[in-house]
């Protein structure tokens, strides 16, 4: 008797592929749609976890495209303080697909970035990049001018890249009630002041998230018809939730939705691939071993394991060292943690 399962490869079966192996011997988790080599220009954006992808590419001799470069001879400390070399341009974290769409619309000139600026103690903050500069900017004009530089650089990263890697991070989002635009962080957390008359909350659902991502990729294709995408989902749990649910439940719901969106778009489009960083860190197979004791931060060995998997599955010879990543991610959302436990 025969059946379709008989012709499947080993990795389609749990027992030989998982149960009978050490977790560190689990390989071939990804069959890349897009082959990369050391000439492939790769842009990276998204949530905190996305930062590791760029650094790993750079550290292993691949072309991590950075279109907003730091001034020559700026020290490593100041590069980090001023948010250079975190993503391909100085956008800060782009946690949601709707925020990605917003940046794409600005870059393509379909919409104009709002004039809104937050003043606090004589310093000025960009609502769309609230921690991009330590202690904010000297004036509203500086905010606008530097944001224009970032929007142009973001656009250039789209037009010049071969592959755009986006890490989906959150479903929860804050927006301006009057004009509808989205903030990366709830006003009043990293900077600014919360005003319930002006600021609204949405916990985005599957359809909206998928449509925003689809629209964002559509805009990017208009700017660069050859562009290909790799989607990942951040394995990092929420710092806090405003959904009304328990943070653990809210995390699972949010990540499940994002994972489903990424999977669905990847299934429907040859140009869109999904890389399973979320599964590598979060699957019970790995026993939570890649989390720090707070069960939220991914430890350097976890980051290293994810990135090693990325390169091994691409069947690439790498020039840099494989293994643990020692760099901390710059994560705006972690600021929310400082508001916890006050009730």
């Amino acid at each position: 008797m025969t059946n379709p399962y008989k012709s499947l490869e080993k990795e389609a079966f749990w027992r030989p592929f998982v149960a009978e192996r050490s977790m560190f011997d689990i390989t071939d988790l990804w069959r890349p749609k897009h082959k990369i080599d050391n000439k492939t220009q790769i842009a990276t954006y998204g949530s905190c976890f996305a930062q590791h992808i760029g650094r790993a590419l750079d550290g292993r001799g691949f072309k991590w495209l950075r279109t907003e470069k730091p001034p020559q001879r700026l020290s490593e400390d100041n590069k980090k303080r001023f948010n250079f070399d975190i993503f391909s341009s100085r956008t800060g974290n782009i946690y949601t697909t709707s925020l990605l769409k917003q940046w794409c619309s600005w870059a393509a000139g379909k919409e104009t970035a709002p004039e809104e600026v937050w003043e606090q103690g004589g310093r000025y903050y960009d609502p769309f990049r609230p921690i991009v500069e330590p202690n904010g900017f000297a004036s509203a004009d500086e905010v606008h001018k530097t944001r224009r530089v970032t929007i142009q650089s973001f656009k250039k990263s789209i037009t010049d890249c071969d592959i755009f890697v986006f890490t989906l991070g959150l479903t929860e989002s804050w927006f301006n009630k009057e004009y509808g635009y989205e903030y990366p962080m709830c006003p009043g957390t990293a900077a600014g002041q919360f005003d319930e008359r002006k600021h609204g909350f949405i916990n985005q659902q599957y359809e909206g998230i998928k449509k925003s991502l689809y629209d964002a990729m559509g805009i990017m294709r208009e700017l660069n018809p050859q562009i290909k995408f790799i989607l990942t989902v951040s394995p990092v749990p929420l710092t806090a939730t405003y959904s009304g649910n328990n943070v653990l439940v809210a995390t699972m719901e949010s990540k499940s939705i994002l994972r489903a969106v990424a999977g669905s778009l990847s299934c429907e489009n040859d140009e869109i691939d999904y890389f399973p960083s979320y599964e590598i860190i979060n699957s019970p197979v790995f026993r939570g071993a890649f989390f720090e004791p707070n069960m939220r931060s991914v430890n350097p060995h976890g980051v290293g394991f994810v990135m090693d998997t990325f390169f091994k599955c691409q069947k690439l010879k790498v020039t840099g060292a494989l293994g643990a990543s020692k760099e901390d991610a710059k994560c705006e959302e972690e600021i929310l943690g400082s508001f916890g436990g006050t009730k």
């Binding site: 020559q72 001879r73 020290s75 100041n78 303080r81 202690n135 001018k145 530097t146």
Partner: peptide, 22 residues
């Protein structure tokens, strides 16, 4: 030399200091 793109005064100052201190 100033950066070839517009940067904040704060970053310009840090850049100037780093050109010497680094």
């Amino acid at each position: 030399f100033r950066h070839n793109k517009f940067v904040s005064e704060q970053l310009s100052d840090a850049h100037l200091a780093d050109t010497f201190k680094n």
